[in-house]
Simulated assay, not measured.
Amino acid sequence: MIDLYTTPSPNTWKVSIMLEECGLPYRVLPVDIGKGEQFDPAFLAISPNGKVPAIVDHDGAGGPVAIFESGAILVHLAEKTGRFLPASGAARSDVLGWLFWQVGALGPSSGQAHHFLSAEGPGAALGATRFVRETERLYGVLDRRLADRDWIAGDYSIADIACWGWVWFNGRLVERFANLARWFAAMSARPAVARGREAGFAHITEAQRERLQGRWWSAAVLHEAMV
């Protein structure tokens, strides 16, 4: 059994989608970041950076193992199951390169775009412009990559799983990139993707869900106005 510490977000969906794709048994343990539960000492013992997602794999080699950071979790689950990550060679390096491109570039820029689009005060407009443009540039990188292939690194992989939520996060901007839009539609049609996205929502209150979606969509409306 795997314990998944999560709250609904593009970053945490990576892990729940992977768990669904692999058919691994897991239980969702919601972390209410609005109440600061990510800073509880018990959670910090699992995720020292105080961020979700994090997991505890109770079937790890040598006993339970705690893993934090979404990229590390995806690699762990891929190696555990032998799925969605080649075992060696150039194909493995390709998947890992795109995985860490998402972790280091696509996710942070997209998240900052949403933050500044919904922020107020000095610097908000400048920050929004900067990160929306950078997100658009990164979407162009991914669009060119997908010009001659169905999936980011050849076969369907943890690179696709990592990127999907951060493409979903930016609404109509996707429509400007034909290859990216095709890939996004194919990803969204996978049953495990839909189940993984909903996994966290099933364990929060309706008020929490409305608060999260309100924050996402208020930024999305502004984003669409800019692009």
Rank of each mutant, 00 (worst) to 15 (best):
G23T: 01
A87N: 00
F39I: 09
A54E: 03
I73C: 11
S118F: 00
A78K: 14
G62W: 07
K35P: 01
E20L: 05
L96Y: 09
L106Q: 15
K80H: 02
T81V: 05
N49Q: 11
V52A: 09
G121E: 03
E120N: 14
G104D: 14
S47G: 01
G104L: 13
F39R: 12
G107E: 15
T6F: 01
A61L: 12
I17Y: 05
F116K: 14
A90P: 15
F116G: 15
A54R: 06
W101H: 13
E120G: 15
L19F: 05
H58Y: 10
G89I: 02
S9Q: 00
F43V: 08
L29Y: 09
P64C: 07
N11Q: 10
P48M: 07
D94P: 09
M18N: 03
D94R: 15
G121H: 05
V56M: 04
G62T: 05
F39W: 00
R83Q: 14
G34A: 12
S47Q: 00
V52D: 06
G123D: 02
P122S: 09
G36Y: 06
V75Y: 06
G23V: 00
Q38R: 06
A113M: 14
K51M: 10
V95M: 11
T6M: 04
A87V: 11
F68T: 13
H114D: 06
H76A: 08
S47C: 03
S118Y: 04
G107F: 13
Y26R: 02
H115A: 06
D3H: 09
G89S: 06
G121T: 05
W13C: 03
G34S: 12
K51C: 01
A45N: 09
P30C: 04
S9K: 00
P122D: 08
L24E: 09
D40L: 11
T7I: 13
K80L: 09
S118G: 11
A113N: 12
D40A: 15
A54W: 05
S88N: 11
G50Y: 01
K35T: 03
A90R: 15
F68G: 07
D40Q: 13
G36D: 01
V15I: 14
A78P: 05
R27I: 02
M18T: 08
A87M: 05
D40W: 00
P53S: 06
F39D: 13
L24P: 01
P86M: 10
R27C: 00
F39T: 13
L117N: 13
